[in-house]
Every structure is written in structure tokens, then in C-alpha cells.
Design a protein around this nucleic acid. Structure first.
Length: 909
RNA sequence: GGGCGAAUAGCUCAGCUGGGAGAGCAUCGGCCUUACAAGCCGAGGGUCACAGGUUCAAACCCUGUUUCGCCCACCA
């Protein structure tokens, strides 16, 4: 692309972003380049977003971090791969398609399994690409040619391979266990998919009549429960063995109300004698604690529910067919009528809900597949303990250890259709065959039975996280010994949120170690959550969601209101959301561009902290983009437009300012590289911001204007300034590129041909340009000190001018006194000081200063500005009097504590 | 119940191994100075949550307290 010969006055992100991305992608810049041998490879696995998803602020933040790391290492010369792809997200995706079917008046069962799955694939093909397109808008430089989907044939093969191997080692087993069951989705879910929240309920105190009560004994025991309907599945009442009130009753029987069944009174230390009556009803088939008690005491386990949580044939006739809540109502009414209810008290309880369906989960006794995790966990714990994997920030390892050391077996089977089907088949007699290949399993079966038989495959599919756990190696071709595995595994860093340490990170570590004998990554960078400006979690129902694409492209108020109030679960919130939105964004959201958004994320990315997204920040960084743009314009006008380019033989002398800014540049190179290496993105961003704006623009560009414009300035000196302008800008663009890919590319394309860099060829991209290394020859401590004095002097004069209310253009005369060395240094640079400070003379003071001077101090130097001729003395006197009055008032108001005289010096003065 | 984290300027936040309290935004004053008014030059503004302790020296280390947030956990 040929740059225009002039630059527009303002930076317009929309005019450059998408075209540059297209060029990068088309030219194959995202694919791993050869890289340098010594450095080796650098690889990041993207946490695969759900294929149903769309980009939210969390993704945008995470992708910014990953892309910054990837671009930085690519420029550094590593063979760099950002492996991308999407996750099939079993339950979530199935729900999306089922909802579509529902709109057509169909259910998945109407279609049947085959056709339903086809339907999901169709959906994926037509609508599954949203998020990867949005990822592109963020500037993410992942290798799209290697995009993977967790249900791709290769990845599915890896899944079966892992399953079979674990099964053969007895690390996967099938068994009837109490699991968390979602009665709406009709599937088991893992412990991690349960979200318990406190809700208001009741504690029902129910009387269980004691059989053969002796004199002096109570005629009934009172048990308290939050779930009275489960009474129908009770198989015991438990008391604490040391509880004197009930000690004598242990082993006796009570009548289970409304059922006529008799159940034993047992003793178990699980019971807390101080809670309620000290008697607990035991329902082993519907409560996790009771299940354990039941196993200890060999109690029967009576399942009273169907998969939809409807009372089944094990319940008395009167309750069969009622759903759990209707059953509860009926049962409580009946208990009350029969005077079995002692009392009902309001009670707060933790209610377990499914993280997808939000329905109340039911502990439910079913056949499921499990991974025996404990043996895998040991290795995984050791890997972190020994430092082979490092968490950043480090304290997350505590969370990891805590969970890993108390880990329970992982229920991996799901009773849904969309996902990796479990590679297990049952023979006519129920004999189980587990095999990674369908053809082979029939051979195995024929061998087993001595004749060909028909087999039934297990209907269940695997938990989505099972395939995610293989992502770091399944995407690289495992179980084949691929060159990608050799090149990129183990990967360098995993960038993710703390919320999936258990779901994903821990499991990747366990499976990685198990199947590759290597850790899947060396570092786990845990970032915080993106919250709104008030620290609230962003959520649809709160109506405070910001869409990263709206921040990039802008959105008008009406569209924003519409977006936030559409498809609400609770439509009554719409008005409040609309009002709040109109209040917060009266003019909608401006287009900030991708770079400003990315830079905002980077500058807020303090380790281990949630970030409150602040509109003020993103606006400030949009200004920064514009500042950079205009700095480049200035450079352009003073070089290209004058026909100047840096060439080898050109005569060049470098002034103090040149040496100063080049020296500063070396520090910034060092600091920003170090910051990126240590995941201190905020330091990298702030350091570059400060350098470019505070040093380069505010001082350097101003200081050298007299050199650039001065008619009598020697050409060599002009060349020194012009080449410095170009070199510093060009290198700064490269330093900034990992954080702001678009604007840096756009400007770099224009600037780099002027810098005369021998390594530059037409068609190059900044993203493939080398990361600027520190050049020691330009490190110049002396120049930094000397320039520091010049700046301090100028600032001192400006402060005096501002405080004395001297007109900005009024030329001043300055007297100085101090050491000869300092004076001489300043006198060397009057060419800069005079125009910047707007003074027209600088004289060494002999004797004492004349009366009526404003004074300033710079280290060992004093400066005096005689005010007699330039100042309205009466106004100044009034100003001073005011300040004296203020101080007097201050002392008067706060007398000294010891003497009460108001003379004590305080810190404030 | 256990664990983790936070509290610094009006707002959002830096402040690494103890020595100067900082940035951006906002505010106030002055500037259309030919890169940029999305800008320039200045200024004001802080009991670093509280209380003790260690130290020559504490925002930072130790102890305790308060407030807020998150995660895990079986109290029916």
C-alpha cells in the first residue's frame, strides 16, 4: 500500500485497521516464521472460546494480553505460534440449537439423534464464526490456518485415545454414584458446574413416631429438613452416638409418616447434636451426606424421583407423578393434617443450581463415567511445587493446591447428544467393550463371543472439558509425533482467568503430564475480571455490559439502549437499564479504535487485580493515538516533505537534545522489554506513553524546532535532528507495536523508508520487524543530566511566569548565580532555553540581586527575574497579601499543641 | 468454617527488594505558539483505612482491628 504524501490532521482508526489486518493475514504473517535457532519457539494456546459465543470484554482483555506477548516474541525472533480455535461447548451449543427447534415447535427427540447432530453442525457452519471474526477485529495475530475445533476428526481421535488409555489403566471407571443431576437438561453435571447460592426457604420440623415408646420416652422424634418431600426416600433417622438424649433409642425404630414404613434409628458422628433437635432424617439417594451415612450403615437407597424430578413409583400412590415442588406442597399439607408438623421456620439455605440451565440440581443416583483423578493430581501438584509450572501472580498456586489436594473423582459423562460420544459399547449380555475405533470393537466382540454380534454404543457424551483438557497437545497433532509437537510443546504461557483454574488449567496439567510426560505450559498468567466503572460484574441483567466492538466502532445511544434491553430474562428491568444507560452515555459511545482499547487494557493490567473499565482511560488513550499520529506528521513534514532521508555518508552532528532523546530511548527499550517479559503490561504501556508524550513530544520536538527552522543552522546539525526524529519515532513504533498494532503499522510504513535502515525491504511489515535492542553507544548519562538541567531551568522560568501572571509572550531577562560548571552548561544551550522559556537575556549576577526579583532554584543554581519593568507591582502585592492572610488564618486556626501559640511548624507548611 | 485479595488525590489506579508520595482523567489559571484545542504552558489537591510494633527511616515489614470483594466447604 502506498502511503499518501500527506497525513490527515487526525487519526482515524476505521480507515486503517481492517485493511491492515487483511494484509497481514493474506501474507501469512501470523504463521510461525523460521525464527532464530538460539531463541527457539514461543507458543500460546488460546483458551478456545465457545463456538456459540461472541466477544465480550473478558475475551478482549485476554486477547490483548496474548497478542501483545505473541507480537513481542515474534519480533524478538522466536518461532512464534498462537494456536487458535473454538470449543464445541456441549451443553451450551445444544441449548442454542434446541431453542431454535423450540421456535419451530420441535424438540431434539422429534429429530432423533442423527438428525439433531447434523442440525448442530449446520448451525455451526452458518453461525459459528462470529467470535473468530471478532477476534480478528482485536488485531489478534493467531495463525488462522491452524484453527482447530474440539470436534475436528483429529481432536476427536485424541479424545478417544485418551479415554481408552485411561480406561485400560483403570483411571476411568463406570459406576452407580450419587451425582449432581440437572432435571431440566436431564444430564449429570460435574461438581464444578454446580453454583450454590443462598436462598430463602424453610426448615420443616417433622415428627417421626417412635415405635414401642416406653414410659418416660418421647412418643416421637423431631427431625428438621429443608426438603420435606425427600422424606419419602428416608431409610433411617440418625443421632450423634454421644448424645445422651437419644443414646438409648439407637437401634430402635420409628414410623416414617405417610408411608407406614418403619426405619431404624442409627448413630453417626456426622450428626451435630447442637443443630435443631439433634435428629437427622437420612435419605441416601437424594443427599450427598446421607449417601455417605447410608453407605456406612448399609442402608437401602430409595430413589423417589424420575430424571425430571417427578415422584416415581417408589413414592406412595398419592404422590406419584407430582413434580418435586408440587409433591412437597401436597406432602406438607398431608403432614400438617395428620399433625406430624411440629413447626415451620424460615431458613436460609444454599441451593445448588446448574451453571447453564440455572435449574435446581438434584443429587441423583445414576450410572455414570468417572475419572479417578487422585493419582493424576499427585503429578500435577508436584509440577507446580517443583516450579516446572509457575503461576503469575504466584499466590494462585494456593488455590490450585487447595483444590488439587482435595480433589474428587470427575464425572465425565453427560446425557446429551452434542459432544464426543463415549467410545464404549455393550454386547447383548451387557458386556462392556472400550475401544478407540468402531471397526475394531466389532472384531473384539466377535472374538469375545465367538461370533459376530451387534453392539450398542453407550449413549452418553463426554464433558466438554474433557476435550479441552487435551487442547495443548491435541491441536498440535498428538497422538502423532508431529513436528508441531516437537516445535511448540510444551507451550510457554497460558493466559486465562482464575475462574477456570479448576475447570481447565488443572486438568490440562494432569492430562498433559499423563500423556506427554511434560507440562503443557511453563507459566500460567492469571488475569483479573473486567468490571464496569463501578466495580460491578458486567451482566446482561444488570444492563451494564460493554461490547468491545462498540468501543472500537462506536455506537449511538438508541442502538445501545436497544441492545441492552433486548432479550432480557427479566423484562421488567428494561426501564431501569434504559434510564441508567441514557444517564451514563447521553451521546452513545464514541469510536475509540482497537489500539486505544488494547492500550487501555494493557495499562490497566496490573497483576492479579480485577480491572474497572474506565471510559476516561480509553478516551485518554485515543488522544494518545492522535498525539502519536501528529508527532509522526511533524516528523514527516520535517523530513519526507523536504526530501530528507537518512543516508550512510551524510554529515551529521548530534546535539545535546539528540543525544538525550536517543539515550532515553535506550532506557525505554530496556524497560518495556523487561516489563513485557515479566507480564507487567501496565508498566510497559505507561513507560511508552510517558516517553513518547512527555519526552519526545513535549520536549524533544519543541527543543529542536529552532534547529529545524533556523536559517543559519548548519546542515549537519539539521541532519542530526532529522535523523534523530526519524530513528526515535521508528523504533518507538516498534516498541509500541505489540500493544497498538494498527496505528504503529500505518505510521511505520511511512517512516521506515526514510530511516535508511539496511534491513528494511519494501513490503515488510512492522509486525515482522525486529524488536529494537538497546544500543549501548547511545546510552549517555551525561546528556541526560545536562538536558535535565536545561529542562529544569525552562520549567522554573515558566512557573515564575505563570505565578506572576506575566504574559506568555513577554520577553524576560534572567540573572543567574551558581557554580561555574552549571552556569557554563546552561550558557551552552541558550539557543534552546531562550525560545522555550521566552527570555531574551541571561546574565551572570554579580553581587546581590536587585530588589523586586522573582527567584527560582535549580540544584546549585539560582535564577532571578527582575520584575520592575514587567509586572504590575500593585497587583502582585495584593496577591501576596492574600497568601499571607491565608497562612495567618491557618496558624491561627491550629495553635501549637504544647504552647498554644500557633507558632509550631507543621508538615503542611 | 477455611483460603485469597483489596483499602493511596474528586474518579480510575501505579508505587518492584524499606529512604523523593506519583500517573491519567477531572478541577483551577493562562495560551488559537505554522504536528496535534483529541492540543500547549502552569497550578491546586493526599492523616497512603485504623491502632500498635520493628527500624536511623514505614504507603511498603510484623501484630491486631474495621470495611469491601472473591473462591472453596456436608451443617440437616
Amino acid at each position: 500500500m502506498m502511503p499518501d504524501s500527506t497525513l490527515p490532521k487526525n487519526y482515524d482508526p476505521s480507515s486503517v485497521e481492517q485493511s491492515w489486518y487483511r494484509i497481514w493475514e493474506e501474507r501469512g504473517f501470523f504463521a510461525p516464521a523460521a525464527g532464530s535457532k538460539e531463541l527457539g519457539s514461543y507458543c500460546i494456546m488460546i483458551p478456545p472460546p465457545n463456538v456459540t459465543g461472541s466477544l465480550h470484554m473478558g475475551h478482549a482483555f485476554q486477547d490483548t494480553i496474548m497478542d501483545a506477548l505473541i507480537r513481542f516474541h515474534r519480533m524478538k525472533g522466536f518461532k512464534t505460534l498462537w494456536q487458535t480455535g473454538t470449543d464445541h461447548a456441549g451443553i451450551a451449543t445444544q441449548m442454542v440449537v434446541e431453542r431454535q427447534l423450540e421456535a419451530e415447535g420441535l424438540t431434539r427427540k422429534d429429530l432423533g439423534r442423527e438428525r439433531f447432530i447434523q442440525r448442530v453442525w449446520d448451525w455451526k457452519k452458518s453461525s459459528g464464526g462470529t467470535i473468530v471474526q471478532q477476534l480478528r477485529r482485536m488485531g489478534a495475530s493467531c495463525d488462522w490456518t491452524r484453527e482447530r475445533f474440539t470436534m475436528d476428526p483429529d481432536l476427536s481421535k485424541a479424545v478417544r485415545e485418551v479415554f481408552v488409555r485411561l480406561y485400560n489403566e483403570d483411571l476411568i471407571y463406570r459406576g452407580k454414584r450419587l451425582v449432581n443431576w440437572d432435571p431440566v437438561l436431564q444430564t449429570a453435571v460435574s461438581d464444578l458446574e454446580v453454583q450454590s447460592e443462598e436462598e430463602s426457604g424453610f426448615l420443616w420440623h417433622i415428627r417421626y413416631p417412635l415405635i414401642d415408646a416406653l414410659d418416660g420416652e418421647p412418643s416421637f422424634l423431631v427431625v428438621a429438613t429443608t426438603r420435606p418431600e425427600t422424606l419419602l426416600g428416608d431409610t433411617a433417622v440418625a443421632v450423634h452416638p454421644e448424645d445422651d438424649r437419644y443414646r438409648s433409642l439407637v437401634g430402635r425404630q420409628v414410623i416414617l409418616p405417610l408411608t407406614g414404613r418403619t426405619i431404624p434409628i442409627i448413630a453417626d458422628t456426622y450428626v451435630d447434636p447442637d443443630f435443631g433437635s439433634g435428629c437427622v432424617k437420612i435419605t441416601p439417594a437424594h443427599d450427598f451426606n446421607d449417601y455417605e451415612v447410608g453407605k456406612r450403615h448399609h442402608l437401602p437407597m430409595i430413589n423417589i424421583f424420575t430424571g425430571e424430578a417427578i415422584l416415581n413409583e417408589n413414592a406412595p400412590q398419592a404422590y406419584r407423578g407430582l413434580d418435586r415442588y408440587a409433591g412437597r406442597k401436597r406432602l406438607v399439607a398431608d403432614l400438617e393434617a395428620a399433625q406430624f408438623i411440629e413447626k415451620i421456620v424460615p431458613h436460609k439455605l444454599m441451593v445448588p443450581r446448574g451453571d447453564r440451565s440455572k435449574s435446581v440440581l438434584e443429587p441423583y443416583l445414576t450410572d455414570q463415567w468417572f475419572v479417578r483423578v487422585a493419582p493424576l493430581a499427585q503429578e500435577a501438584i508436584a509440577a507446580v511445587e517443583e516450579g516446572r509450572i509457575r503461576f503469575v501472580p504466584q499466590n494462585w498456586d494456593k488455590t490450585y493446591f487447595e483444590w488439587m489436594r482435595h480433589i474428587e473423582d470427575w464425572c465425565i459423562s453427560r446425557q446429551i447428544w452434542w459432544g464426543h460420544r463415549i467410545p464404549a459399547w455393550y454386547g447383548p449380555d451387557g458386556y462392556l467393550f472400550v475401544c478407540n475405533c468402531e471397526e475394531e470393537v466389532y472384531e473384539l466382540a466377535a472374538e469375545h463371543y465367538g461370533r459376530p454380534v451387534s453392539l450398542t454404543q453407550d449413549p452418553d457424551v463426554l464433558d466438554t472439558w474433557f476435550s479441552s483438557a487435551l487442547w495443548p497437545f491435541s491441536t498440535l497433532g498428538w497422538p502423532k509425533q508431529s513436528s508441531e509437537m516437537a516445535d511448540f510443546y510444551p507451550t510457554q504461557v497460558l493466559v486465562t482467568g482464575f475462574d477456570i483454574i479448576f475447570f481447565w488449567v488443572a486438568r490440562m496439567i494432569m492430562f498433559g503430564l499423563k500423556f506427554t510426560n511434560k507440562v503443557p505450559f511453563h507459566t500460567v498468567y492469571i488475569h483479573g475480571l473486567v468490571r464496569d466503572s463501578e466495580g460491578q460484574k458486567m451482566s446482561k441483567s444488570k444492563g451494564n455490559v460493554l461490547d468491545p466492538l462498540d468501543l472500537i466502532d462506536g455506537i449511538d445511544l438508541e442502538a445501545l439502549v436497544k441492545k441492552r434491553t433486548r432479550d432480557l430474562m427479566q423484562p421488567h428491568l428494561a426501564q431501569a437499564i434504559e434510564n441508567a444507560t441514557r444517564r451514563e452515555f447521553p451521546d452513545g459511545i464514541a469510536a475509540f479504535g482497537t489500539d486505544a482499547l488494547r492500550f487501555t487494557f494493557a495499562s490497566l493490567a496490573t497483576q492479579g487485580r480485577d480491572i474497572k473499565f474506565d471510559m476516561g482511560r480509553i478516551e485518554g488513550y485515543r488522544h494518545f493515538c492522535n498525539k502519536l499520529w501528529n508527532a509522526a506528521r511533524f516528523v514527516w513534514m520535517n523530513t519526507q516533505e523536504l526530501g530528507y532521508t537518512v543516508t550512510d555518508g551524510q554529515e551529521c552532528t548530534f546535539s545535546l537534545a539528540d543525544r538525550w532523546i536517543r539515550s532515553r530511548l535506550q532506557s525505554v527499550k530496556k524497560e518495556s522489554a523487561q516489563a513485557l517479559q515479566e507480564y507487567r503490561f501496565n508498566d510497559a504501556a505507561n513507560g511508552l506513553y510517558g516517553f513518547l508524550w512527555g519526552n519526545y513530544c513535549d520536549w524533544y520536538l519543541e527543543v529542536i524546532k529552532p534547529v529545524l527552522y533556523g536559517p543559519t543552522v548548519a546542515m549537519a546539525e539539521k541532519n542530526g535532528a532529522r535523523s534523530t526524529l526519524l530513528v526515535v519515532l521508528e523504533e518507538s513504533l516498534r516498541l509500541l507495536h505489540p500493544l497498538m498494532p494498527y496505528i504503529t503499522e500505518e505510521l511505520w510504513q511511512r517512516m521506515v523508508p526514510l530511516t535508511g535502515r539496511s534491513t528494511y525491504h519494501e513490503g515488510d511489515s512492522i509486525m515482522m520487524a525486529p524488536w529494537p535492542e538497546v544500543e549501548e553507544v547511545w546510552q549517555d548519562e551525561a546528556a541526560e543530566v545536562e538536558m535535565g538541567q536545561v529542562m529544569a531551568f525552562v520549567t522554573a522560568v515558566r512557573t515564575i511566569r505563570s505565578q506572576m501572571n506575566l504574559p506568555p509572550g513577554q520577553p524576560l531577562e534572567v540573572l543567574i548565580s551558581g557554580s561555574v560548571a552549571t552556569r557554563q552548561r546552561l550558557e551552552r544551550h541558550t539557543g534552546w532555553i531562550f525560545p522555550l522559556a521566552k527570555i531574551n537575556s541571561m546574565t551572570v549576577l554579580i553581587g546581590s540581586p536587585p530588589p523586586g526579583c522573582a527567584t527560582g532554584v535549580i540544584e546549585d543554581l539560582r535564577l532571578f527575574i527582575p520584575l520592575a519593568n514587567v509586572l504590575d507591582l500593585e497587583a502582585e502585592e495584593a496577591r501576596l497579601q492574600k497568601s499571607i492572610d491565608r497562612l495567618a488564618e491557618f496558624f491561627g486556626a491550629r495553635p501549637c499543641r504544647c504552647c498554644g501559640q500557633g507558632r509550631e511548624q507543621t508538615r503542611r507548611v
